[in-house]
Nucleic acid binder design. Structure first.
Lengths: 211, 211
DNA sequence: TGTACATCAGTGAACGCGCGTTCACTGATGTAC
DNA sequence: TGTACATCAGTGAACGCGCGTTCACTGATGTAC
């Protein structure tokens, strides 16, 4: 039952999309090839026609999950000015913490990546670099003595850590979880050179474009 | 073949210790009860005499891994003055990144905890709180406008994120991995109110005890 | 445009294997007398 | 102190199940003539 090239490409994309969502929700080890194939409305045999192994699919799913599959990046297309305040507000929000299915793949799987093969690590690194560039382009002046690139690296790692910790504490200590999000948001905004914002004030000073 | 109470308690401790090490190295989903029992020189049946389930053992192993099983905390006993600089230097070092077996359980499993049950989350929260207290007690003055507790929360989450990201990038981009460690170390030291340090200068100004 | 056939995406049964958990049993320990 | 026996930590076979991967097969697509 051969199908058209277009349909085959669609199926391949479906597998990646389903894998990205399921890996974010249940971890890479927590999802089987049967689950992924089923979610993509295919059989596991079809999965192996497109990818040599589950780990190869994981590498592609992670790449997708940090680019096209990134909810925030998608909403950004029309926005011309990178805005760290907006990004932090989204990324370190209870909404982003709780919506694993469409959240940042890096935060969802951070501690698992190091145990996968190099291709998975490479996808993470690429996604991480993209995110650092996005942050670096939106940095303002800061009292912190460090180059924009150094600050951007630390900010992104701290964002990922903040969400990972907020998720880890959510079940047993929901208030602690929100304190972590709030504190991380506030301090990263300061490092980034944003003006400190109160929780009631929703407007953020636009920072000058660095690029 | 009943054994003494003392030996039984030892065996229980062995199971927790073995579980803590193996979970750190391979993730909670990446280790089976057979592996843990074998490492503790017991059979899996004995494991179930001590713990109702693998997840219950995971909760205890995580609690152990953030307290008695924490390499840094152990070396601290004699030290009277909490020193954030020393802590950051250890925690955000390539050595700590690479030695999973004896590293911080929170950084090793951060993104997996949210998928386990509440008992595991509770162990994480407790370990996290302990670490926040340790950091808070060693905070100096800072240009960053936030309370000591807020700064401590953000610093600890960023430490965990820094190590998780450094591990995730290590296989594909070792230089990036070290940059992440260095940048996170430098910026957290500044937030903590330490004097900025060059990489060649190994001595750190002792900060005043907050407690 | 029509025919013949090679291609290959997708199917589904089967592979060996390890998973978490249960349970009947063992036998030295710990206790009651 | 000596005897009788209940306790229970630990053993190891067995449970059903899902895992990642392989492979013979199908049949419409895509291509060569």
């Amino acid at each position: 039952m051969r199908i058209t090239k277009e349909k085959a490409a669609e199926n391949r994309a479906s597998l990646i999309k389903a894998a990205a969502r399921l890996f974010r929700e249940h971890g890479i080890d927590g999802v089987g090839v049967a689950d992924i194939s089923k979610a993509a409305k295919l059989t596991h045999g079809a999965l192996y026609a497109h990818f040599p192994s589950k780990e190869a699919l994981a590498a592609e799913a992670l790449a997708y999950g940090t680019k096209d599959g990134n909810e925030y990046l998608k909403s950004l297309d029309k926005d011309d000015d990178p805005d760290l305040g907006k990004y932090l507000e989204y990324y370190l929000s209870p909404r982003h913490r709780d919506n694993l299915a469409v959240s940042c793949s890096m935060a969802a799987s951070a501690s698992e990546i190091g145990r996968q093969d190099e291709a998975v690590s490479a996808s993470f690194s690429e996604g991480f670099n993209d995110m650092v560039e996005l942050v670096e382009a939106s940095l303002g002046d800061s009292a912190v003595q460090a180059t924009a690139h150094e600050r951007a690296l630390a900010i992104v790692a701290a964002m990922i850590g903040g969400v990972a910790v907020a998720r880890a504490t959510a079940k047993s200590r929901p208030k602690l979880s929100e304190q972590v999000l709030r504190a991380t948001r506030a301090i990263l905004a300061e490092i980034g050179g944003m003006e400190p914002r109160t929780s009631s004030s929703r407007t953020v000073r636009k920072v000058k474009k660095a690029a």
